[in-house]
């Protein structure tokens, strides 16, 4: 497991990145703001506090995945630190995998910290909650796995800014794929139908991972809504990492 050095290094790099601190602080502020919203909630305060906090966790961790993830590979190439790594007995696929796992370890930590903060908010506001409240965060982790793999994939051949923009666009479209399907069904134009169907079937459907609404409104969640997105997330991650390996393997430094 030589690539554990890559995991450790990626984790330390992100941990010492100022962006992380800034985004975590923004996350805390967003969650703390629910305390001030409570008087304006007109009886819906429990739902608003839960929804706002879960959305904050989602928003912050997605931003971290896109902003830090987009720089993961390119930065190593640009700053020539890649020479230090690939001149060692490390295979190129180990490097990509190490980068991915390091970033996921960080995101796991971020979700953990923000979830603890969420717990504190619930305690302070006296909002009741059970363990089901953690389910959106579990699926968020698998959604972040796809986003991180997308960012790594783009990062193997574009600049950090472009990789982040591409990843953000795909994240955005990924949450609208159901609308794309609906568009394909109602549209009378065959071109629109083909394009909408093509996008629906080729882009990751990230809306599958969003069960915040159901949890907040205490709608029963079927078992399939949990484990199918998990399998879906794993398959997309493996596919994207595989294509990242293929691109990276051919590169000269």
């Amino acid at each position: 497991m030589r690539f554990k050095a890559i995991i450790l290094n990626t984790f330390i790099e992100s941990l010492r990145d100022k962006i992380l601190i800034v985004l975590l602080v923004v996350g805390f502020i967003l969650m703390a703001s629910s305390k001030f919203i409570k008087p304006l909630a007109l009886g819906e305060e429990i739902k608003i506090i839960k929804d706002l906090s879960l959305s904050s966790i989602n928003f912050i961790s997605v931003l971290i995945a896109i902003l830090i993830g987009g720089r993961l590979i390119y930065k190593e190439i640009e700053k020539r630190t890649i020479y230090l790594v690939l001149s060692k007995p490390i295979k190129r696929w180990e490097f990509i995998l190490g980068k991915y796992l390091g970033q996921m370890l960080l995101l796991f930590l971020v979700i953990g910290i923000l979830t603890i903060a969420f717990g504190i908010v619930l305690l302070l506001t006296g909002v009741p909650a059970n363990f089901l409240i953690l389910l959106p965060n579990l699926l968020l982790l698998f959604q972040l796995s796809i986003i991180t793999s997308l960012a790594i994939f783009f990062s193997t051949f574009t600049t950090p800014l472009t990789a982040s923009i591409f990843t953000f666009i795909l994240y955005f479209i990924g949450h609208l794929t159901r609308d794309l399907k609906a568009l394909a069904q109602i549209s009378k134009s065959p071109i629109v139908k083909v394009i909408a169907n093509f996008l629906y079937y080729t882009l990751p459907n990230l809306a599958n991972f969003d069960i915040k609404g159901k949890v907040v409104h205490e709608i029963p969640i079927s078992f399939f809504l949990i484990y199918l997105p998990i399998i879906y997330g794993i398959l997309w991650t493996l596919g994207l990492l595989y294509f990242s390996f293929l691109i990276f393997e051919k590169k000269d430094f």
Binding site: N9, E13, D17, R80, T81, Y83, L84, S87
Partner: peptide
């Protein structure tokens, strides 16, 4: 590459370490 130590030209390292 276990048997090789490589020092690149103008070495760039991880500044945060």
């Amino acid at each position: 590459r276990k048997n090789i130590g490589f020092l690149p030209e103008q070495p760039y390292f991880y500044e945060y370490l």
